[in-house]
Write a protein that binds this DNA or RNA. Structure first.
Lengths: 324, 324
DNA sequence: CTGTTAGCGCCTTCAC
DNA sequence: GTGAAGGCGCTAACAG
């Protein structure tokens, strides 16, 4: 059994209240007694029970974080930055992964609620109409990242529409006259919230190319690519995630198609591992670590001061590589 | 304020005990009442408060996981597999990152203890002599991964010594007659626990090469490489982590040194992103996801049945690429 | 300055 | 089959 305040109180022949005062510098206390108590606490290896403290205070100092998975470096970078910022603000993070499943996501939220997290940061795929009201019912601050839930839930992100428009325009300016646009999640509109990807698609659609674009929204996008004569026209393959672009690069290398002389490739996210990839991938930076830090900052303020969290748009940037 | 058992009891004109029986299928209860209570609970949106439950039960159903960071995909894969397994076993994971700092590590452990985690999974760098006794004092199951703490703390891993010996032997068998061995952490022996890397170094040392090996233990290993005539002899660069190998590949490409015809490169860990790297890196597989799942399995059994956790050695494998 | 006490929400006897 | 009550460990309000 762990050492409790009561154990210390008994050992020092004082009351639990006095021990509490000594340990937490509360109110007036006889300095000698205080020293004795602190010494005893150390001797016994006392560690306060935060579960009990949380129950009493109604605050766990924990922020629940729900993301898809950690296979995409995008999310591990996000968690990394949040953990660091949270530690700095004396918060703990509670992590759960949804693997893109909306029911898993709801279960994760409920689990967080039962564990009384003080706030929730969410990368959501849930597309249910009343999802944001469902979330608000729990009466804790919620922030969404990577995918907007609704106007009722604060959302911190880049301007996805503008970013993809910029990307497509960059492709056009480079002299390409056809784009193959790869965005598998677009096929999941009925079952998933794909807000950000729809935004990107809209942005992409605003740029006119000489030849009609080809949209690939299949999970087997490489298989789909095989059915297309890639070398027709001056073609660029524009991907909505670096991960897709990396798979595409692998495919093109296998087919001995030269990048960028025969076909251009562009990604999205600018994940760290790109520095090891050849040719250097042209992509769009998504400052996810910065966004993670901001999210923790905002939510901790919302928790502590009741501040309303504002939507925020962080600037993106075209990262020029050698794949286009 | 959240809905409690008492609220439901009042709303249904029954006692809290009865509500508890209804919600948790305990003991005998009038079926009609049970239905009424369940309906009311749903209507009010009751979510049990696990903080209170944990306090009462003395069990949080939470496993604390402490790793270095998530920048190396090795660790994000580990967390991914653990989260999945933990969820399956109805455990929650509590994540903290140490960034290779032993004081941060101790603080993380203490924080976990205060939060009453039921068990602790630890990738440790702490080299203090009494560290394992310090850990044992908390009286919860502890498992170490990636780095052994002492014989007192169960350790699940590959046989690092044997694995690196196999790697070096593979290099020798490939006809190389000199090895440049890159293992920056070896310089930190005084301040960090580097058990696994010492093991690897021992294994490496057991293989004789025709020409004397060069050991690089500097953080600036690329700078160090620049001072060496790499093209002398038939040289292979053997790295203790894929991450180092990727940096080395970048350096060699920049210097227009051909791999593997002019120099061979070998990594360690076999992280997933290697599939996007060219040339395919020859490396040693470290089945970290399997180890993560085993760790969760063992520790949950230790928590529930008091089983003692056994050390375990998982088999490694040479992964043959095109870089050697 | 210090001791007592009630209560956070849940669970578990014990009595009826 | 049901209600009452105590307690997990900590905190805060209230006496003294």
């Amino acid at each position: 059994m762990a050492v409790t305040i009561k154990n210390i109180a008994d050992a020092c022949n004082v009351s639990r209240g006095t021990v509490d005062r000594a340990l937490n510098n509360r109110g007036k206390i006889n300095p000698e007694k205080k020293e004795l108590i602190l010494a005893k606490a150390k001797e016994l290896g006392y560690k306060p029970n935060y579960i009990a403290r949380s129950l009493k205070r109604g605050k766990t100092n924990t922020i629940g974080i729900i993301v898809f998975n950690l296979y995409n470096e995008f999310f591990s970078s996000l968690i990394n930055s949040m953990e660091e910022k949270a530690k700095e603000k004396d918060y703990h993070i509670d992590l759960a992964l949804t693997h893109y499943d909306k029911n898993t996501e709801k279960k994760c939220v409920e689990s967080m609620i039962r564990r009384q997290v003080d706030g929730l940061i969410l990368c959501s795929v849930n597309n249910e109409k009343d999802y944001s009201s469902w979330l608000q019912k729990f009466n804790i601050p919620v922030v969404s990242l990577a995918n907007k839930i609704s106007n009722k839930i604060p959302y911190i992100s880049i301007d996805d529409r503008r970013a993809m428009k910029d990307a497509a325009q960059y492709v056009a300016d480079k002299g390409y006259d056809r784009i193959i646009y790869i965005s598998p999640p677009l096929a999941y509109e009925d079952t998933h919230n794909i807000y950000a990807l729809k935004q990107r698609f809209e942005g992409f659609s605003q740029v006119n190319m000489e030849h009609e674009s080809i949209i690939i929204n299949s999970k087997d996008y490489i298989k789909e690519l095989e059915t297309i004569n890639i070398l027709e026209y001056k073609t660029a393959i524009l991907c909505t995630s670096d991960i897709y672009a990396l798979e595409v690069l692998n495919y093109l290398k296998e087919k001995k198609i030269k990048i960028p002389s025969q076909v251009g490739v562009m990604g999205f996210d600018n994940i760290n591992m790109l520095k090891y990839i050849e040719p250097h991938l042209t992509t769009v930076s998504y400052p996810i670590e910065q966004i993670g830090a901001i999210a923790i900052d905002s939510i901790s303020q919302a928790i502590e001061n009741g501040n309303k969290i504002q939507n925020m748009v962080i600037t993106h940037e075209i990262i020029i590589g050698e794949s286009l």
